[in-house]
Write a protein that binds this DNA or RNA. Structure first.
Length: 426
RNA sequence: GGAGAGGUGGCAGAGCUGGUCGAACGCGCAUGACUCGAAAUCAUGUAUAUCCGAAAGGGUAUCGAGGGUUCGAAUCCCUCCCUCUCCGCCA
């Protein structure tokens, strides 16, 4: 949730943010409601003070009168809050000042392109064709058993995914490696290692709401019998890890990573990316999540991007770093950066990673705070970012394909392939 | 799933025959005294949010969450959430 004080004092900023993020919201109306809410609250506080006095004096008559009057105020307040709260939840986070302004993803800005696209002496195939031919991707059976947008990953592709997981873990839990990434990216952040986590894949609606990720609900799987949602990313249950806690400043940054399945209904993307495993209802992904003090949040995001770049580069993949414009940001995001990896079979860059910086937007509702050295409590800042996802497998299949239909394993993954050959072949 | 017990401040733990309870005592923590220094000891302080105030300070709300009874609720009632114990089932 946005800081209500920003809305009070800098309504223009909030209005501009809404406009830039394509959020239609009557900020003036929210402001009005808030003003009335504050006024009534002050009034009610004063009335309660009198009530408390009457109660202390055991003045039953005065108490009865004040109670009746208070009930009217309380009613009025409840009505205003019922109107105000849902509106406040819809107020998006403010984009950082360096975020490019734009209506849609078409106006995203490519920050840099890194790596060399592979050249082929033949026409490279799409991953779906390669994978189905090798028997490592089976969408037909996936569809038969679970429906459209489900697939079986088989054999060496599962080993490859596992290798990717091991590889990512070896980076994220190693402070020396993280230090060198930091030095390489010219950043000044802590090299503290990530704590690997196996988080719940289910989340309660109220917590999901606090993460500001429950919307769009069409996109979420809801288990009605237990009123639980399936997570769409490990972020959803990593972010609330310190809900209702006040952590020590010395404990920050706190960094976590988790390799989990992610569930998405893909509502509204019918007919898009129907081939292969680029857009499934269920896919596996390794996510990074971090909690920092406010002033370190931005550098932390740059650090997470640096890790993403490192992983992608180590895999020998060409990629571009894209600064997502305001119109392509999520509501809770202040700064959103994507990594798009070159997919030769599709002849284009495709999003494989994203890195979101939420400032204190999520922490406010989660009530995750840090006790600063000064003794003051402040909201923490949160960041989340992909380490690798199912789409990284797609990139490997397309970039490492050979003319005979086989696929070479990227060198850095070989130590994690359980002694398998360097080639995935039929 | 069945039966029972319980959720109080950073921790531990009273209060729960309604009023003097934002809440005892202890531990921890902070500051000060003592000390060459430390330990021990003593003194003082030590929840969160919000409003008023330059500050000191004060008001209000919060004893799992929400609602109710009452002039007055941590204490009584209802609903929900969670934890623990026993039985059953199970990877």
């Amino acid at each position: 949730m946005i800081d209500i004080k920003i809305l009070r004092e800098h309504g223009d900023l909030v209005k501009r943010a809404c406009e830039q993020k394509n959020v239609v919201l009557d900020i003036d109306a929210i402001f009005e409601l808030d003003q009335r809410e504050r006024l009534l609250t002050t009034e009610l506080d004063e009335m309660n003070r009198q009530r408390n006095e009457a109660a202390k004096a055991k003045d039953i008559e005065a108490g009865k009168k004040l109670k009746a009057e208070g009930a009217i105020l309380e009613n009025e307040l409840a009505m205003i809050r019922a109107e105000l709260d849902p509106l406040l939840l819809k107020v998006p986070n403010l984009p950082t000042s360096d975020t490019p302004v734009g209506k849609s993803e078409d106006e995203n800005v490519v920050l840099r392109q890194v790596g060399i696209k592979p050249s082929f002496s033949f026409t490279p195939k799409e991953h779906s064709e390669i994978g189905e031919a090798l028997g490592i991707i089976d969408t037909r059976r996936g569809t038969d058993v679970a429906g459209t947008r489900f697939a079986y990953l088989m054999g060496d592709l599962v080993l490859l995914q596992n290798a990717m997981y091991q590889f990512a873990l070896s980076i994220l839990t190693n402070e020396a490696t993280l230090s060198s990434i930091i030095a390489h990216a010219n950043l000044t952040v802590s090299a503290k290692a990530f704590v690997p986590v196996a988080p719940p894949l289910f989340i309660r609606p109220d917590v999901f709401q606090k993460m500001a990720r429950i919307e769009p609900r069409d996109e979420r799987y809801h288990i009605v019998s237990d009123d639980l949602y399936l997570i769409g990313s490990a972020e959803h249950t990593l972010g609330p890890l310190h809900m209702n806690e006040i952590v020590k400043e010395a404990d920050l940054p706190m960094r976590y990573c988790a390799f989990t399945s992610a569930f998405r209904r893909e509502a509204g993307s019918y007919g898009k990316d129907m081939k292969g495993i680029i857009r499934l209802h269920q896919f596996d992904k390794m996510e990074m999540e971090s909690f920092t003090v406010a002033e370190d949040g931005l550098a932390e995001q740059n650090f997470l991007v640096a890790i993403q770049e490192y992983i992608t580069a180590q895999l020998g993949l060409a990629y571009q770093v894209v600064f997502c414009c305001t119109g392509d940001q999520g509501d809770p995001d202040a700064r959103h950066i994507d990594i798009e990896t070159w997919m030769p079979g599709q002849d284009k860059y495709r999003e494989t990673h994203s890195a979101d910086y939420m400032t204190d937007y999520q922490a406010r509702r989660l009530d995750t705070k840090v006790k600063r050295e000064s003794g003051k409590n402040e909201l923490v800042h949160t960041n989340d970012a992909t380490a690798f996802a199912g789409r990284t497998l797609v990139a490997v299949l397309e970039n490492y394909q050979n003319e005979d239909g086989s696929v070479t394993i990227p060198e850095v993954l070989c130590p994690f392939m359980n002694g398998k050959d360097r080639i995935i072949a039929r």
